[in-house]
């Protein structure tokens, strides 16, 4: 029983840790209040709510709320709210928004990308109960290719003229083209 609990809790804790790490990584250095503060707050809330959803995943919903006491109704409402939205999607958008508000820092962004993908994979493993080793083994090549492209995108940002004007747009176009080519070339 204890082994089962540990195996269930491990990916959930890992997902929470990765979410916190991604939020902290995107927030550093702190830009103060205003829009960055709002983005950070939204991201933090999403990470917390997503972690709570995973933690309460096995709690069954109360079928009958009519005869339930006030605390039971409150718990039921909280469960419904936590399960209503896709917190991870909102969190990803908020973290990207927060990252954009920082000045360009390609390697930092690349690490954030790796953290976000790891977070999403871990959340999926935690909520689906899939064996992490089997899933990652099957997707290892794709993830590795994605990491290479991530590094390539970060490196491309250091090229001269990559930060402003038409050169920047061309760099983005080139990055998208490389990704599209990789998607088409890699075997399924």
């Amino acid at each position: 029983m204890t082994g089962h609990l540990i195996s269930v809790a491990r990916p959930r804790i890992a997902a929470m840790a990765l979410g916190v790490a991604a939020a902290a990584w995107a927030a550093a250095p702190l830009l103060g209040s205003g829009w960055p503060g709002l983005a950070l707050a939204v991201a933090g809330c999403c990470v917390a709510a997503g972690s709570l959803r995973l933690a309460l995943q096995d709690v069954p919903e109360l079928e009958e709320a009519y005869f339930a006491s006030a605390p039971e109704r409150a718990v039921r409402a909280a469960l419904v709210i936590v399960r209503l939205l896709s917190w991870e999607e909102i969190g990803c958008v908020a973290l990207l928004w927060l990252e954009v508000m920082h000045p360009a820092r390609p390697w930092h962004t690349a690490v954030l990308g790796a953290l976000l993908v790891a977070w999403l994979l871990t959340v999926h493993i935690a909520e689906s109960g899939t064996r992490a080793a089997g899933l990652l083994r099957r997707q290892a090549k794709i993830v590795a290719a994605g990491a290479c492209l991530l590094a390539l995108g970060a490196a491309g940002a250091f090229l001269p003229g990559a930060t402003s004007g038409a050169g920047a747009a061309l760099h983005v176009l080139a990055a998208i083209a490389v990704i599209a080519a990789a998607v088409l070339v890699l075997p399924g």
Partner: peptide, 29 residues
């Protein structure tokens, strides 16, 4: 989201950020 922000802000590293997710979606699909 990463692609949109990359295009709007003209930052190629954000396009690179979208690469792993796109690869997983594309190749998996």
């Amino acid at each position: 989201a990463a692609m949109l922000l990359a295009v709007l802000n003209r930052r190629p590293e954000l396009a690179g950020l979208a690469a792993p997710a796109l690869l997983l979606l594309g190749v998996g699909g």
